[in-house]
Simulated assay, not measured.
Amino acid sequence: MAEHDHSAIKEHMNVVGADGVHLGTVDHLDGERIKLTRADSPQAEDGQGGKHHYIPAGLVASVDGDTVRLSATAANAAELFEEAE
Score class of each variant (00 low, 15 high):
residue 2 A to P: 10
residue 3 E to L: 12
residue 4 H to V: 11
residue 4 H to G: 12
residue 4 H to N: 12
residue 5 D to Q: 11
residue 5 D to W: 07
residue 5 D to T: 08
residue 6 H to K: 13
residue 6 H to G: 06
residue 6 H to Y: 14
residue 7 S to Q: 06
residue 7 S to T: 12
residue 8 A to I: 09
residue 9 I to S: 09
residue 10 K to R: 13
residue 10 K to G: 05
residue 10 K to H: 09
residue 11 E to V: 00
residue 11 E to W: 00
residue 12 H to T: 09
residue 12 H to V: 05
residue 12 H to C: 04
residue 13 M to G: 06
residue 13 M to W: 06
residue 14 N to T: 11
residue 15 V to K: 07
residue 16 V to E: 13
residue 16 V to I: 15
residue 17 G to M: 00
residue 18 A to Y: 00
residue 18 A to I: 00
residue 20 G to E: 00
residue 21 V to E: 12
residue 22 H to A: 12
residue 22 H to L: 15
residue 23 L to V: 14
residue 23 L to T: 09
residue 24 G to A: 05
residue 24 G to W: 01
residue 25 T to Y: 01
residue 25 T to F: 04
residue 25 T to P: 01
residue 26 V to R: 02
residue 26 V to C: 04
residue 26 V to G: 00
residue 26 V to P: 01
residue 27 D to K: 04
residue 27 D to Y: 07
residue 27 D to E: 13
residue 28 H to D: 07
residue 28 H to L: 08
residue 31 G to K: 03
residue 31 G to W: 04
residue 31 G to E: 05
residue 32 E to M: 14
residue 33 R to E: 10
residue 34 I to L: 14
residue 35 K to A: 15
residue 35 K to F: 10
residue 36 L to A: 04
residue 37 T to Q: 10
residue 37 T to W: 00
residue 38 R to S: 08
residue 38 R to I: 10
residue 39 A to G: 08
residue 40 D to K: 00
residue 40 D to F: 01
residue 41 S to W: 05
residue 43 Q to P: 00
residue 44 A to I: 01
residue 45 E to C: 05
residue 45 E to I: 05
residue 45 E to Q: 09
residue 45 E to M: 08
residue 46 D to Q: 02
residue 46 D to W: 03
residue 46 D to T: 03
residue 46 D to F: 01
residue 47 G to L: 05
residue 48 Q to M: 10
residue 48 Q to Y: 04
residue 49 G to K: 07
residue 49 G to D: 11
residue 52 H to A: 11
residue 52 H to V: 09
residue 53 H to C: 14
residue 54 Y to I: 06
residue 55 I to A: 10
residue 55 I to R: 04
residue 55 I to W: 09
residue 55 I to C: 09
residue 56 P to D: 15
residue 56 P to Y: 14
residue 57 A to N: 14
residue 57 A to Y: 14
residue 57 A to P: 13
residue 58 G to W: 11
residue 59 L to C: 08
residue 61 A to G: 09
residue 62 S to R: 12
residue 62 S to L: 07
residue 63 V to S: 03
residue 63 V to M: 07
residue 63 V to Q: 04
residue 64 D to H: 14
residue 65 G to D: 12
residue 65 G to F: 11
residue 65 G to H: 11
residue 66 D to L: 12
residue 66 D to K: 15
residue 67 T to P: 13
residue 70 L to T: 04
residue 70 L to H: 05
residue 71 S to F: 02
residue 71 S to R: 12
residue 71 S to H: 07
residue 73 T to F: 06
residue 73 T to D: 05
residue 74 A to F: 05
residue 75 A to L: 13
residue 77 A to I: 05
residue 77 A to G: 06
residue 77 A to K: 02
residue 78 A to I: 01
residue 79 E to N: 09
residue 79 E to A: 08
residue 79 E to H: 07
residue 81 F to M: 03
residue 81 F to K: 02
residue 81 F to Q: 02
residue 81 F to I: 03
residue 82 E to P: 03
residue 82 E to C: 05
residue 85 E to L: 13
residue 85 E to F: 14
